[in-house]
Structure formats: structure tokens, C-alpha cells
Simulated scan of single mutants.
Amino acid sequence: MNPTAHSTGDHRKKKDVLSAFFTQTARLSRLRSQIAALLLTTILFAVGCSTNRTRVVLLPDHDDHVGKVEVANAHGSTLIDQAGYGVTLKQQSAPAPAAPIDEKEIQKEFAAVLEKEPEAPAKFILHFKSDSDVLTDSSLARIPEIVAEIKKRASMDISVAGHSDRVGNEQYNIELSYKRAQQVSTLLQKQGVDARFIHTSSHGEGNPLIPTPDNVPEPRNRRVEVTVR
């Protein structure tokens, strides 16, 4: 057997697995933004129902992601997929195409709902020493700050996502990123955070803050991102 051909085949399989992993992660991210947008438009829809007409308005989530929502009645349907666009429904006719709604009009009509909108997620970036799951001193000092935010919100949704730079191969960096996420999770749990509320993930080198060529060290990419909702 040609060892070079065998090595190339193994590398291709690893690349395929990694590609599938990152594709699934991206799909989950898009799904989350679409669900957030849909939930918000559903609330605005309920407000519109209290009048003689029903209005549905699509707004972005806290990360400025825009989902989409289909609005339908017995006569037809229409799709809203742009932020600030809306549809006014009437029982006697099909929904008209989505049209832009003036920001002042949105604020006035849905003020009561927007005031009760959930607080934006708190985000923290922690950095690590090279080729290690050991936090830098400045990042380690931020753990109490994160714990305080979790307790203030009584959060039950804490995302801990590990990342790496592009030094080393992809599989190694996925494993290293996971170790980094696990290390932060352990530190939070030692401070009293319930493990059931912590969701860890690994992105490896696939989602850099600072794009670089392969095998170029970049300290800002050696990180864990903690999101507290």
C-alpha cells in the first residue's frame, strides 16, 4: 500500500468530518437567530390583535441577526425576511407583501412590548497561553465578574465556546478548544454555577476573531467566549 495515498485519504476523511461539524454549528447559529426573531414578531403580533387590525413586524435579535416569518390567513400568505418590515392583516383579504415600517411608528405602537424585551446577553472573552488550556492572568481575574453576572441574572443559559489559533492541525485544535471550554466551565462551577446551565462547545480554528494564514500564532484567537443570557 502506498503510505502517501493512505495518509492523504485519512486527511480527506478528517477534513470531511470537520467540514460537517462546522456546517452543523453554523446551522444551529442560524436557527437560534431565526427563533429569536420569530419569538419577537409573535409578541408584536399579539399586540396588534388587540385592535381592529393585526400587524406583524420583524425585528433583529440582540446580535443584529434577522430571521424570517411567514404570515398567513385563509386567503393567502406572505414572507417577512427583512428587519423593520411588517404586514397588516385583514380578515377579508390575503396579506399584502411586506413593507418597511417607520421606526418611530414601531416604537409608538409596540412601546409596551419593547420595554419588556429581554436584556441583551452579556459577553466575555477570555484568552489562553499558547498551546494550553491555561488562562492568562488577566483573563483568570475576570472569572468572578462572569459569576457575578450569572448570579445577577439568575441565568440558566450560559454558553462557553472554545477557540484556537491556526497553529497545529485542525483536529488537535478542536480538542484543545474543547479543553479550554471545559476549563472555564470547571472554574465557573467551582464558584457555585450549576453545571446544568453551562453549555460547552468547540470551534477549533474555524471561527477566528483575527483571520491569519495557517500556522501563524495569534493570541487573540486563543480564547473562550462566554455568553450569559
Score class of each variant (00 low, 15 high):
72 A>V: 05
48 G>W: 09
64 D>W: 05
70 E>C: 00
74 A>G: 02
57 V>A: 14
81 D>W: 00
59 L>A: 04
83 A>Q: 02
48 G>I: 05
69 V>P: 08
47 V>Q: 11
53 R>N: 15
80 I>D: 02
51 T>F: 13
74 A>K: 04
50 S>C: 11
63 D>G: 10
53 R>H: 15
83 A>C: 00
86 G>H: 02
78 T>K: 02
84 G>M: 07
68 K>L: 13
69 V>S: 02
67 G>T: 10
83 A>G: 02
53 R>E: 15
46 A>F: 13
86 G>N: 04
78 T>N: 09
75 H>F: 02
52 N>H: 11
57 V>W: 15
79 L>R: 10
70 E>S: 06
67 G>Q: 10
56 V>M: 14
61 D>W: 13
57 V>K: 13
64 D>T: 07
86 G>W: 02
62 H>M: 05
46 A>M: 13
85 Y>W: 13
80 I>A: 02
51 T>G: 06
64 D>V: 03
57 V>H: 14
47 V>N: 13
61 D>E: 13
69 V>N: 06
58 L>V: 11
61 D>K: 11
72 A>K: 07
47 V>Y: 14
78 T>H: 06
58 L>I: 07
49 C>T: 11
77 S>E: 05
80 I>K: 00
84 G>K: 15
84 G>R: 02
77 S>L: 02
71 V>L: 03
66 V>P: 05
80 I>T: 05
47 V>A: 15
46 A>G: 10
49 C>R: 15
47 V>T: 14
49 C>V: 12
66 V>G: 03
76 G>S: 00
82 Q>N: 04
56 V>I: 10
50 S>V: 11
50 S>R: 15
47 V>H: 12
71 V>H: 04
62 H>L: 09
85 Y>G: 06
57 V>E: 08
47 V>G: 11
68 K>Y: 08
76 G>Q: 04
76 G>P: 00
73 N>W: 01
67 G>H: 11
80 I>R: 00
48 G>Q: 12
56 V>Q: 09
77 S>C: 00
79 L>K: 05
67 G>R: 01
72 A>I: 10
85 Y>P: 01
60 P>Q: 12
73 N>D: 06
59 L>Q: 06
73 N>K: 03
86 G>I: 01
76 G>E: 01
54 T>G: 08
74 A>I: 01
64 D>C: 09
68 K>A: 15
65 H>K: 06
61 D>P: 10
77 S>Y: 07
59 L>T: 07
55 R>T: 12
64 D>F: 09
68 K>R: 13
70 E>K: 04
74 A>M: 08
76 G>F: 00
68 K>E: 09
55 R>Q: 14
65 H>M: 12
68 K>V: 07
70 E>V: 03
85 Y>Q: 00
69 V>Y: 03
70 E>Y: 04
85 Y>H: 10
79 L>P: 01
85 Y>K: 00
55 R>S: 15
82 Q>M: 11
71 V>M: 06
62 H>F: 07
69 V>C: 06
48 G>K: 06
63 D>A: 05
46 A>T: 13
75 H>D: 00
74 A>D: 01
49 C>N: 14
80 I>P: 01
71 V>D: 06
65 H>D: 14
50 S>N: 10
64 D>Q: 12
53 R>P: 10
62 H>C: 07
72 A>H: 07
80 I>W: 01
48 G>L: 09
49 C>L: 14
71 V>Q: 04
72 A>W: 06
78 T>G: 05
